Amino acid sequence: MAIVDEPSDIAALEQRIEGTVAILRRVEAEYLPAVLASSFSAEDMVLLDLIRAHTPGIDAFTLDTGRLNAETYKLQQRVRERYGPVVRTYYPEAFEVEQVVASFGVNGFYHSLEARQACCHARKVEPLRRALSGQRAWLTGMRRAQAATRSELPIEEHDPEQGLIKLNPLAEWQEADVWGYLRSHGVPYNKLYDQGYRSIGCAPCTRPVAAGEDIRAGRWWWEHPARRECGLHRSPQD
């Protein structure tokens, strides 16, 4: 069973669903072409399910960093079987990864912030730019309650780095809402959540969290919490 077992407030969840669908419909009406950036997190699965049901004009993509968990790949196949080939995959450029490994070593990200950010840039940030090319807006599954770095996350904002509208339709959702939706709609999820993970990225940079720890405590746990973003969601002044 997934780590979050407390039930969500059904009435409140229905209101959140209605509000999120309204956001998605506005995106489809006003911002196409638009695309969901999915890491196949629990939140991204909520959005993908809602998009396929209500606003199929919104596309979706994922970034395969080359260092994902086996469970993540298994979920990708389950998504394809349920929804069809609706999530396009982008990969890092080989020469970018080769340069990072040559400069810092294959696991150099454990030893310096510079190395970790260089790895994230090659495996995530550069492919993201290609994935967003030609889009007017992009959507994420980020929530305010996930981390201190996201506490003031707006539902809609201008992304100066990408020059696009960026929408976070689940910004106001709580973790129990996410799991309430997945369970009530029978949506597949990453089985690592059943092992104590609460935020899932690359295998070497993600671990389960202990009871009482922050949701993202298992991401880059050797770094200061204020730095625990990969670069996909930072403005240039960060």
Rank of each mutant, 00 (worst) to 15 (best):
G141T: 00
H158Y: 15
T89R: 06
L128D: 11
P169W: 09
D59V: 09
H54T: 12
Y83N: 13
R144N: 05
R52H: 08
L113M: 12
R78N: 08
F61L: 03
S151G: 05
N168W: 03
L164N: 04
K166C: 11
A147M: 04
Q76D: 09
L132F: 13
R80C: 01
A115E: 06
G141V: 07
V87C: 01
E71L: 09
D159E: 11
E152M: 10
A115K: 01
Q146V: 07
Y83D: 02
W138P: 12
T149D: 12
S133T: 09
M142G: 08
P56H: 10
P160D: 12
A137C: 15
G108Y: 03
A115G: 00
E156H: 07
Y90S: 11
L170D: 07
S112F: 00
I58V: 07
A53K: 13
V101P: 01
Q162K: 10
E71H: 08
G108Q: 05
E96I: 00
D64Y: 04
K166E: 04
D59L: 03
G134I: 08
A145N: 13
A122G: 08
Q135C: 13
R82A: 12
Q77T: 11
R67Q: 14
G134S: 07
V87R: 02
C119I: 04
G84T: 04
E81C: 02
H54W: 14
D59P: 01
Q146G: 09
F61V: 03
A70Q: 14
N168C: 07
T72W: 00
L68T: 10
R67G: 11
T72I: 00
V79L: 02
V79T: 11
R136N: 15
Q99N: 05
T89V: 13
W138I: 02
L113D: 07
I51W: 06
E152Q: 15
E114F: 01
T55H: 04
R136Y: 02
S133C: 04
